[in-house]
Amino acid sequence: MDMSWFLVVSALIFCIGAFGVLTRRNPLVVLLCLELMLNAANLALIAFSRMHGNSDGQIFAIIVMVVAACEVTVGLGVIVAMYRRRVPIDVDELRELQG
């Protein structure tokens, strides 16, 4: 398989994720779409790693995975805190950070 196929798939997944971030209102789904975008970046990194026969890209992908896990834990913590305070779980309604 040509490497360009993998890169096009990665670009498509990234665009789907970006579209979801723009249109969906539930912060849970927005977080899921961020995961989609990070995974598309991972696919591109690993494709380039295979293309050059160099493992450094895979290390990058693993670090991206770690950062994504951190983002998920903090984001879900914020969502749970919002639910506890009876704040509407809707990104359009949230306009200020102050509790």
Partner: peptide, 16 residues
């Protein structure tokens, strides 16, 4: 990265 994971875990517990 390991420090980042630690900070994220503590932050999530504090937030939630």
């Amino acid at each position: 990265a390991s420090f980042l994971l630690l900070i994220a875990a503590v932050g999530a517990v504090t937030l939630a």
